[in-house]
Design a protein around this nucleic acid. Structure first.
Length: 493
RNA sequence: CGGAGCAUAGCUCAGCUUGGUAGAGCGCUACGUUCGGGACGUAGAGGCCGGAGGUUCGAAUCCUCUUGCUCCGACCA
């Protein structure tokens, strides 16, 4: 037996995260968030504190998406957090959808109550309460109505990065929090076709970010009517499959038709001299994507960050004996060279033990870990390990060679992660002929989505309703590739 | 908002049945030996036992009421 084999054999099966994915997926998910230092619960139920490392991740995602949004000609703006109650009531379906989860601001002053505690002052009750935005269609619609006069003002393409609130019964970190961060785009057009094209275009922008940055290969498709956004004619989505086979609605893009335009008088005078009602779209992408990232890629040792959005792409860990000043100085030079190449590099020069530094980098999902000890320094070498492949990928190379190939290594990891995500998703979509097959599938703890003819569930609403409640499944989407003939069914977050 | 669990040190938990005034492991601090997939020794710091009542000479422990968290479901990005 070689030394290497002996080492592998006695290597502990211990994982950094307990329980493991197989043992308890929801608890594992929370364990990863904690171990990777992404976020934590706040004193306010349903809200979370996004910690610096988690926020750096969100900023990287945000930057990638923001650049693409601007590249298609959309302008950023900012609209108020508070929305007059009367606004939200104007679109009937919209209010039906959101009324249950709106936080309401009713007072503008506090005063000392009878027990010496602070209470909202009874004299300071607002005549018209405000709601905290659950989404901004209405208040942006109000502005659009003012800003659009002529066909020359169209299209009007607006986006805002904001926080929104939806009072959640069952919060889950990143996936469903009462307050969350997102971008919401709101565009107005002269014609129906332009709006439909825009809805489609923005979903493809999202898909670009999901595939090429988050390395998640989801399924683009249209929502069935029962899953549509309140107040939309069409809703389209990316449904991503998590490692436990459940679906995550990764983002949405809506064709709002003329519903909001009519409610808010978004009109333009056409070349014909007549007044016409606009067609609007809205599209959103939230911090939920971070939850999707975790459930797509993390493993039993913690987070795995796709290189393109990783806060640290390379973590350099000096393996030091005694004071190690020479090795650390050497690592600093290497870090500077990598930085020059545009690599986001983190040098762990803390006085923690080497093994602790390694595990910290593993749990945080740093794509590439670089280890340099005294002897390697003397020889001009370094050792690097890919996070997604683990110790099997441990490679020792010359430092100059590494500088030349590091970007390619990161690119390869990024590509591999996307491929694994796509293969997993495609491999767990099961085509079925009858609802009885679907029933049997979920009864047998089947993992993934079922794909059936759309008319199977549409023509048998009672049968589908039963299936839905028995297995907690729902229509996920009608994949574009099937042109509406097929629908995916699955459990979801 | 229904159903089920759980609240004791930063974390994971023991102690509760049979009341007697606070424990372990990990983590943290200092020093020393260590450091290539989770080290060890020594010495320390750290808790009005989720909160409020009640029973009692005495409550982490028994009773009542609350609040929070987790999971499952309904609702939703």
């Amino acid at each position: 037996m070689t030394q290497a084999q002996a080492k592998v054999n006695k290597a502990p099966a211990k994982t950094a995260i307990t329980p493991t994915r197989a043992e308890n997926f929801p608890e594992w998910y929370q364990g990863v968030i904690k171990a990777a230092d992404l976020s934590e619960n706040s004193p306010v139920r349903g809200c979370m504190v996004i910690k610096p490392y988690g926020y750096a991740l969100w900023e990287n995602i945000q930057r990638a998406l923001d650049d693409k949004i601007k590249a298609v000609g959309v302008q950023n703006a900012y609209f108020p957090l508070l929305i007059p109650l009367s606004f939200i009531s104007r679109e009937a379906e919209h209010i039906d959808g959101f009324a249950k989860e709106c936080a309401v601001v009713t007072h503008h002053r506090l005063e000392k109550g009878p027990k010496g505690n602070l209470i909202p002052s009874p004299d300071a009750e607002l005549e018209e309460p405000f709601i905290i935005r659950p989404t901004s269609e209405t208040i942006i619609g109000d502005s659009m109505a003012k800003w659009i006069q002529s066909y020359r003002d169209l299209p009007l393409l607006l986006n805002q990065w904001a926080n929104v609130m939806r009072w959640e019964m069952r919060p889950r970190m990143f996936l469903r929090t009462t307050e969350f961060l997102w971008q919401e785009g709101h565009n107005a057009f002269a014609t129906k076709q332009e709006a439909i094209d825009d809805m489609m275009k923005m979903l493809h922008v999202y898909n670009d970010v999901y595939e090429n940055y988050l390395a998640i290969g989801g399924i683009m498709g249209e929502k069935t009517s029962d899953e549509r956004f309140p107040g939309a004619d069409n809703s389209i989505t990316i449904e991503a499959m998590m490692q436990d086979g459940k679906a995550l609605q990764a983002c949405t893009s809506h064709n709002l038709g003329q519903h909001f335009a009519k409610s808010f008088n978004i009109q333009y005078q056409g070349t014909d001299g007549q007044m016409h009602t606009c067609h609007t779209t809205s599209w959103g992408f939230s911090t939920r994507s971070v939850g999707g990232l975790i459930m797509s890629h993390a493993d039993d040792d913690g987070m795995v960050m796709p290189p393109k959005i990783a806060p640290h792409q390379v973590s350099i860990i000096p393996i030091v004996k005694d004071d190690g000043a020479a090795v650390i100085a050497h690592c600093q030079k290497l870090a500077a060279r990598l930085k020059e190449k545009g690599i986001r590099v983190h040098l762990d020069a803390s006085d923690a033990r080497s093994s602790d530094k390694m595990w910290s980098a593993i749990k945080k999902g740093v794509p590439l870990r670089v280890e340099i000890g005294q002897r390697e320094m003397d020889e001009g070498n370094l050792t690097h390990i890919r996070r997604d492949l683990g110790r099997d990928s441990k490679t020792t190379v010359g430092e100059n060679e590494f500088i030349g190939t590091v970007q390619a290594v990161l690119d390869a990891m990024q590509a591999d992660m996307l491929k694994r995500s796509r293969d997993f998703t495609r491999g767990n979509i099961h085509e079925m002929k009858t609802l009885a097959d679907v029933d049997a599938f979920f009864k047998g703890d089947g993992v993934g989505f079922c794909k059936v003819d759309t008319n199977l569930t549409m023509n048998d609403p009672e049968g589908f309703k039963k299936l839905k409640s028995e297995h907690a499944i729902s229509h996920r989407c009608m994949p574009f590739e099937d042109e509406g003939r097929k629908v995916l069914l699955g459990k979801s977050y």
